[in-house]
């Protein structure tokens, strides 16, 4: 809505400009350049400058043989292949970090996908019933504070295998914010919408899809966004313990063979992937719940 109201403002300028003499013709590209310049100065320049300053301080602090940690130039020297090509395959355990991230993402997809489905359904039921909410909420509030890794031993004992255990850890970590936010969103459905549903005699399933999901979408997606962030935290930690091909295990493996520079590259991969996941869910949420608020 905001975007559409802003856009038309630029339209009248060229129309009036076309009838006037050369002046506006010069003014238009200049304006566009100025806008681009302003965008770069306001949005792109600050993070780039900060990044350069941070790298510089890092370089100055850790260069020289005495320090235990590698400087940025060391990282580039020793782990260039990991940075330059994320998707190389040299052997079954010697693969690019892109592949490792994808393996971890696959586990996240299973665990988080399951958490999303179960979480939204459970949240919907709880949001509909004040009694159920009162019964379950304290338990959820306690369980959601349990750190992801604390679930791992139980999970390993239950599944006897590392792959389903890792997926379960993601599931159990991500599900709480999804349940809690969905329940809050369902409770916030305006009485008007419920009345409409009552007059139309919508059944439970119709009510869920036609009223509840669209109305609670902003809440559901803020839960999903928190959940996906937690999933990513959990999988990296879980893989360090369970092993396999994921990015978390890669860090543990690199630590055991003293490849510190590889760890730093992996950290950047993890950070960027987490950032992209967060933005992706946020973007889907905006698209899906567009128009939910008037």
């Amino acid at each position: 809505m905001n975007v559409t109201t802003l856009k038309p403002r630029q339209v009248p300028a060229p129309q009036t400009a076309a009838q006037v003499l050369p002046l506006p013709v010069v003014a238009r590209p200049r304006l566009r350049l100025a806008a681009l310049g302003r965008f770069v100065a306001e949005r792109v320049a600050p993070p780039v400058v900060v990044l350069i300053v941070v790298l510089l301080i890092w370089q100055l602090s850790f260069s020289g043989g005495t320090s235990g940690l590698p400087a940025p130039t060391d990282v580039w020297d020793q782990s260039r292949d990991l940075i330059v090509d994320p998707f190389f395959v040299y052997g079954s355990q010697d693969i690019g970090l892109g592949w490792r991230v994808l393996t971890s993402l696959e586990r996240v997809a299973y665990g988080f996908g399951l958490a999303a489905i179960v979480g939204v359904l459970v949240g919907a039921v709880l949001g509909q019933s004040a009694l159920m909410m009162r019964g379950f909420d304290p338990i959820f509030q306690v369980l959601r504070t349990v750190p992801p890794l604390a679930w791992l031993p139980i999970s390993l004992a239950a599944f006897m295998d590392s792959r389903p255990s890792a997926i379960f850890v993601i599931f159990i970590t991500a599900i709480w914010p999804i349940i809690i936010n969905t329940a809050a969103g369902v409770r916030a459905i305006p009485q008007d919408y419920r009345n409409v549903a009552a007059v139309l005699r919508l059944n439970q399933i119709e009510f869920f899809w036609k009223i509840m999901v669209p109305s609670a979408a902003p809440y559901i997606f803020s839960g999903l966004r928190i959940g996906v962030g937690l999933s990513w935290l959990a999988i990296v930690a879980a893989e360090m313990l369970t092993g396999g091909v994921g990015i978390g295990f890669f860090i543990w493996d690199a630590w055991n063979s003293s490849r510190l520079t590889d760890i730093i590259v992996a950290l950047v991969y993890i950070g960027l992937t987490g950032f992209i996941l967060d933005r992706l869910v946020g973007w889907i949420g905006r698209v899906v719940s567009r128009g939910t608020a008037e």
Partner: peptide, 18 residues
């Protein structure tokens, strides 16, 4: 019970905004 044989025009329109 409510039903479509008694349709209501609500005070604040109650259209579904999405």
């Amino acid at each position: 019970a409510p039903g479509p044989d008694r349709a209501v025009v609500f005070q604040n329109h109650s259209l579904l905004p999405w």
